[in-house]
Amino acid sequence: METLPIALDAMGSDFGPGVLVAGALEAAQLGIPVLLVGDQAQIQAELAKHPSNSKIQIHHTSDAISMNDHASDVRRRPEASINVCTRLVKEGKAGAAVSMGHSGATMASALFTLGRIKGIDRPAIMAYIPSQKGFCALLDVGANADVKAQYLQQWAVLASAYYQAVHNRSRPSVGLLSIGEEEHKGNALVLEAHPLLKATPEIHFYGNVEGKDIFKGTTDIIVTDGFTGNVVLKTAEGEAKVLMGWIKEALTSTFVAKIGALLAKPALKKITQRVDPSEYGASVLLGVQGLVFIGHGSADVKAVKNAVRVAHEAYQKDVLGKLRTLSNTSAN
């Protein structure tokens, strides 16, 4: 069976198509077929800067949703690059869509073009946060600020199916983010969601977890509302940058410290890689009838490459088929 390419929105970035094209080329060097969607002239101009034997396809479209546009604009601009990406997925011409641009527009395009998986009320964005045990999958991280308890239940099922398929982990543990481990603690949403999750046979529910448990890796997956999840994600990313800055400042403060820095350089590199968001590439949008991945608009070349890589892995492992099967079973 022919391997479908990953459709990358070549216009969705804070830095223009240059970073996206460079990242696509690095992904192509891994043997991943990439379809760049956007203005052909601009894409070809960037490709000319990187002589490569890698085959990159281009799907021309002159329109693009900028960061200043409203997410609802996707409905009246069918030829915008993100709409073309999701349409290619729906038509079976691309295995997944990747955008490092307007996250709201990407989600709106996915919903408008692909629709929701049966039994799912709202899609959610799942991101990885580094932990002592590797990483923790957190959702929702921004798609839904106000949610209902059944949304958390549905997301737990989706995240479990995704985690099992991609990471080959049988029955990953699921935690419910709260202000205490005890079952009786939490706001109205948590108190309503806890018994629902506890009674869901498709997941391995651990119980309530606190903020510290995200970084301890107490559970494989943690569910929460999009407002809280987004705050947690951005706080974690911001703190990681500050901590690495402090370490760099300390290691260059004196001559002796600089010598120590040279000796510790290999270990520090490993730490930097673990907390670097670009290592994880992009976050998956769970709940729509197609594979869609959303990255940072400020993504660098490595982040783009890894975003395409994780999208390709999900496509190769038929994650969408597994999500449909498990969520349909849960809905019945």
Rank of each mutant, 00 (worst) to 15 (best):
T3K: 15
D9F: 06
A10V: 09
M11K: 04
D14R: 05
F15M: 07
F15S: 11
G16K: 00
G16N: 00
L20I: 03
A28S: 11
Q29H: 14
Q29T: 11
V34W: 01
L35T: 02
L35Q: 10
V37S: 10
Q44D: 15
P51V: 09
S54N: 10
S54P: 01
I56Q: 06
I58P: 12
H60W: 14
H60F: 14
H60G: 11
S62F: 13
M67D: 06
M67A: 04
D69L: 04
D69V: 03
H70E: 14
V74D: 02
A80E: 05
N83K: 02
T86V: 13
E91W: 00
K93G: 09
A94F: 03
S109Y: 01
S109H: 00
L111E: 07
L114T: 00
G115I: 01
R116Q: 10
I120H: 04
R122Y: 06
A124I: 11
I125C: 07
A127Q: 13
P130H: 00
P130K: 00
S131V: 01
F135M: 02
L139S: 08
V141Y: 00
A149G: 06
L152C: 12
Q153D: 14
L158N: 00
L158D: 00
S160T: 15
Y163A: 07
H167F: 15
H167G: 13
S170D: 15
R171M: 14
S178H: 03
G180K: 00
E183T: 08
H184T: 15
N187P: 11
E192H: 09
H194L: 13
P195V: 02
K198D: 01
A199Q: 14
T200W: 06
E202R: 01
H204F: 08
Y206D: 12
E210M: 04
G211I: 06
K212T: 04
K212M: 08
K212S: 07
I214K: 00
D220T: 07
I222R: 01
I222V: 15
D225W: 07
T228K: 08
G229T: 09
M244I: 13
G245H: 05
K248N: 15
E249Y: 11
K258N: 13
A261G: 12
L262N: 12
A264W: 03
L268M: 15
L268S: 09
I271T: 10
V275Y: 11
V275I: 13
V284S: 05
L286G: 09
V288F: 09
L291G: 03
V292P: 08
K302D: 06
V304W: 01
K305E: 14
K305M: 12
A307H: 02
A311K: 04
A314S: 11
A314G: 03
L320N: 09
G321M: 07
K322N: 09
K322E: 12
L323Y: 05
L326E: 15
L326I: 14
